[in-house]
Design a protein around this nucleic acid. Sequence first.
DNA 1: TATGAATGAGAGTTCATTCAT
DNA 2: GATGAATGAACTCTCATTCAT
Lengths: 189, 189, 189, 189
Amino acid sequence: MARPIEKRDTIVRSALEVFVEKGVDGTTIQDIANHANAAGGTLYRYFRSKEELAQSIFFENLSLFMSELKKAILKEKHTKQKLYAMVDKFYNFFENDKVLYSYLLLSEHNFAKKMTKNYQTPVDLIIEVINNGVAKKEIFSKDSVFAAAFVYGAVVRITYFKIYGRIHEDLSIYKNRVVEGCWAFLQNE
Amino acid sequence: MARPIEKRDTIVRSALEVFVEKGVDGTTIQDIANHANAAGGTLYRYFRSKEELAQSIFFENLSLFMSELKKAILKEKHTKQKLYAMVDKFYNFFENDKVLYSYLLLSEHNFAKKMTKNYQTPVDLIIEVINNGVAKKEIFSKDSVFAAAFVYGAVVRITYFKIYGRIHEDLSIYKNRVVEGCWAFLQNE
Amino acid sequence: MARPIEKRDTIVRSALEVFVEKGVDGTTIQDIANHANAAGGTLYRYFRSKEELAQSIFFENLSLFMSELKKAILKEKHTKQKLYAMVDKFYNFFENDKVLYSYLLLSEHNFAKKMTKNYQTPVDLIIEVINNGVAKKEIFSKDSVFAAAFVYGAVVRITYFKIYGRIHEDLSIYKNRVVEGCWAFLQNE
Amino acid sequence: MARPIEKRDTIVRSALEVFVEKGVDGTTIQDIANHANAAGGTLYRYFRSKEELAQSIFFENLSLFMSELKKAILKEKHTKQKLYAMVDKFYNFFENDKVLYSYLLLSEHNFAKKMTKNYQTPVDLIIEVINNGVAKKEIFSKDSVFAAAFVYGAVVRITYFKIYGRIHEDLSIYKNRVVEGCWAFLQNE
DNA sequence: TATGAATGAGAGTTCATTCAT
DNA sequence: GATGAATGAACTCTCATTCAT
């Protein structure tokens, strides 16, 4: 009977964008409100604090992305194809929503402390995939965590390079080469 | 006999440690002063502002690290050995001073904007090494920037894993495996 | 059959209760609305502002109480009986509606500034009664205002004690003793 | 070696004065700061919050006043003289520092909730004096708490009357009459 | 008539910075 | 050089009030 909710989504999206541009600490409520064409106070109808807003965006979207990753993995049988599927998801996510991707990937450090142990991250998923691959003797790593570090590092650093402007191509052209490089590494491990 | 540690040095080191623990924005002048057993105002005798202090620590030490990296590379002839030397420097740096390493590596994002184009970073160095390797036909990458992303990503992600507590071994044991993995990748590129 | 309790009344009663619990300044419109099962905006259909609501409750009820006091006094001839009638009204009021009583008596200080000079209070009535008593030579106070202070203080402090939990009996048992005490005082004055 | 503390006392006194004028909730930090010729932030060097400041002033001074009251009582032997000594202290306190007195006496209601049970108030002291008087058979009250309510109410209401402008004389002239009135009451009880 | 989403002024508080000592 | 008291701009957050529905 009252006014319909109109500003919530705008605020969330605006916050995301300003957070990525200036960092959470560097962003003021006014920054967000201005960007969202809303009043400062409106934010507090939906979130208890700026910090809660920041965390909410982070964890909700991380959760969504994790679901997609898992779904993609389940479709594949062979470890190499699972790897490819993950890289595909990462790069597609990046190209579809660079801002959200940047927020999730670049602020991992800020939220690391707040992640309860039982929160699953993409890194955990890669470790799992590698462990499965070893179990199925498709790869031969003695140390799956180390291997995951190598693979994850190689995969996501490409995206950082594009964020920082070192790379300009559509990331899809790198998918095969990255997976091949990782696969070569995993075979020798 | 040893020269007395100057207040300036104490402040710089304290700042570094608190910055890594709480982030630059999350650190107050008081935090630093307390940690350094100094008064808040003392900091301003040596630095114009908190931001200048943070940048000063970043750029001075990045510069030092770059010098070491370059020196190490010059000693080597073959690209693979240059790569190894760099990885060696990275992992030694990490093990010798985790706090400083964390500051330089994890806050790269924060200072990225402030880095003037002519500032050289480790990434630039890796690109250079790869380009040289291609020129000397020791490796065959069509896209040295992409190749550098892969290599750099793989190399440093191991250190992140140790920072985040996923890995506990001394990083020296990974040097060979990382370099071999990167080398395999670079051969195929 | 009973007429439906109007929203306005619910709001007024809710406001009263929350005002007494948290103080007017400490009470938010939301507090009142929640307590009244109404929306915040509804309040503004009946009152221009929170302050107006608070004053309205205060002055309306003070006025009602004053009428009752006056009516009770008119019924009595002798000063002592008038006094008794007043004490009776006070203590009955207290026992019948502690919340409203507390609001009127404990927030007298807050509204004192807003009371226009021509507003009559229970204190004024007591002064009047005493003055009449002196005129009729039933008591012999040289200073009726001082005497009223003594009497009023003694009478109402009992109610404060009960509000603060120092006394637990029904106040009716104190009526006689209070009046006797006051009367003794008034005789000697 | 640094600047000497200069503003603390001014802030405390200014806060007291503005609190009495506008109430704690009605007083802003700016009000206090302006009144004290200080910057808003300075307050926070000495108090964690406005509320802490308000409580600190209240409890510290209540404590001081209680000490004085106790000292005064100890000097006297007979209950009537103890009563007189207390009234004397009350009225002297009032005349010497009306603002502080008003703060302590008129905001008793606000701090009542925060008073831990073991906090002793003037009311407790009066109850004690009356109990002692009964024990020594100098008075014959069956209910010392009720008697204390009567006495305390009569005594302090005079001060309220002066605060509210109903009385203008120096309170010292009322001391005897108040005590006599209370004594008469206590004899009959 | 009632709702509650939205507003925005203004509150309390923090903290980088200054400067008298 | 060093101190830390004082400053005040800027921040986060609250809440009385408005108004589209």
